[in-house]
Amino acid sequence: MGSAATLRAQIEGMLEARIPSALTPKARPDQESMSCGVDAIDRLNAFPRGTLAEICGPPSTGRTTLLHGLLARCTAGGEAAVVIDVSDTFDPVSASQAGVVLSELLWVRCGSTPAHGKARTALEQALDAVEHLLRNGGFGLIALDLGGVSDNDVRRISLGTWFRFRRAVEVTRALFLVLEKQSNASNSGGSVLDLSQSGIDIEGNAVSSRLQHIDGDCLIRTLRTRAELLRGQMRKPVRSVRTVGEFSTRLQSYH
């Protein structure tokens, strides 16, 4: 190890005049983490700019809530954001209630074949759209929503594709966020926020008797979520950092 370090120092010394620090990777400054509006998650610094971040979890675990929170803070700060919606499930009403400035949001709805275009799957369309949007630049947040896509299909995305996305986003101030059921980006992911349901709070007479249902006799109050940040840094030596936070959100509308 010592001889390798010496050799590296010698080579760098020889090349110093032409290529300063030829064999030393350029240190990247730590980018600020984007806020999602949930204190317990913001404390984890789960969404640093210039990285590929993943929000994973099964349905009804608060993935979309966090996505809307991030979009709201990004667009309210005057930055443009984009959602590449593979299964066309984005709800503008819900997003607007979360504070998203819709005019600053570009929504790409995959799944429809254009009249003169090639017939491609929604996932292929989405990956193609991500390439174009990453290349375009200028967005604060680029979100790829794979939440409605089957695990098998998502697993078919090659590691090379994720790596390419990671390299493309590294040189920008954008956060590239992937919302999915399981983490797939492997080492290309800067951070993985794994969500799981920790409970659903019910209010009303039926709480005691789960099988008894009478019209309007209970109210589903809150959805409680446990979030575990699996990886938080990409610099060497890579350490698996695990931090945990919990949050709960009310169900919208009727009250």
Binding site: G62, T64, L66, H68, S94, A98, G99, L223, T249
Partner: peptide, 16 residues
């Protein structure tokens, strides 16, 4: 844009 947003309190939905 106002720049300020209240903390997240409501659960969002995904529409089929």
């Amino acid at each position: 844009t106002s720049g300020s947003v209240s903390p997240v309190s409501q659960t969002s939905v995904r529409v089929f």
